[in-house]
């Protein structure tokens, strides 16, 4: 097995774990942790793709921007979570399901 293929398995693993975490997490902060795991998968995927196409620098520079953007998203998510905690006193997403049907 080449390193590239191992890297791809790593990507799939991160995506799978991140998705699983997102599906079972009840705590908002854990939801955001799960999102971060998903993003890590995407980052590794971009680097691996750069390697696979022989354009590593392109893959790297895309990954840089992904890091920036998704850090920003994580921060906004955390800010929302804090605001939720402040207004509702909970981080449980089950309490955040008033909008339904």
């Amino acid at each position: 097995m080449t390193t590239l293929q191992i890297a791809v398995i790593g990507v799939l693993g991160l995506i799978g774990i991140g998705l699983y975490g997102l599906l079972i997490a009840r705590n908002l902060i854990k939801v955001i942790v799960a999102l971060q795991v998903l993003v890590k998968g995407a980052l590794l995927a971009l680097v691996a793709a750069g390697l696979a196409s022989g354009k590593l620098n392109l893959g790297q520079s895309l990954a840089v921007m992904v890091i920036v953007v998704d850090t920003v998203v994580a921060v906004i998510g955390l800010a929302l979570a804090l605001q939720v905690k402040r207004r509702m006193g909970t981080l449980d997403i089950k309490d955040l399901s008033t909008l339904k049907k």
């Binding site: 990507v11 999102l35 998903l38 993003v39 696979a52 998203v73 929302l80 939720v84």
Partner: peptide, 30 residues
């Protein structure tokens, strides 16, 4: 609270979508 809840769902689901797009892009790049 309802507004925050809506914002949060919007954020998380958008973020998941955006990760999927990134994976697709990685495949295309590769």
């Amino acid at each position: 609270p309802a507004s925050l809840e809506a914002g949060l769902k919007y954020l998380v689901q958008s973020a998941v979508g955006s990760v999927l797009v990134l994976l697709g892009m990685a495949l295309v790049l590769a």
